[in-house]
Amino acid sequence: MLNKNISFTAMDVITSVYNYFRPRILGMVVALLFLSVMVVAIAFTGWPSLDQIPQNLEDQSNIEGIGMLIFTDFVVPFEILSIVLLSALMGAIYMAKGDDNQ
């Protein structure tokens, strides 16, 4: 449903655009600066030729390999990680629960 009372002047547009951008402009500029640095870095880096990669084209699935690795080479970090995860969860629950009174 169109309402004829609603109308925008150019100034309103500019103001609203300005109000939208004003708190964001610094973030935008910095983000773009960072992006440009990254893109330039990626684009101008001589990556190794693509012939050799990816090597396992036939077997696209790598779940098996990852599983093997986790339970062989990385079993200790894996266990430690489980403890970290558990304690983080306990900590989170403790913090989020707050006092019993509330």
Partner: peptide
């Protein structure tokens, strides 16, 4: 062609979960 990085990504995801949990708490 080295799966170590992907294993590392898995760990990283787990740690991200920790971080999110703590952060929300």
């Amino acid at each position: 062609g080295d799966l170590t990085g992907q294993v590392f990504a898995l760990f990283s995801i787990a740690l991200a979960a920790c971080e999110a949990a703590i952060g929300f708490a």
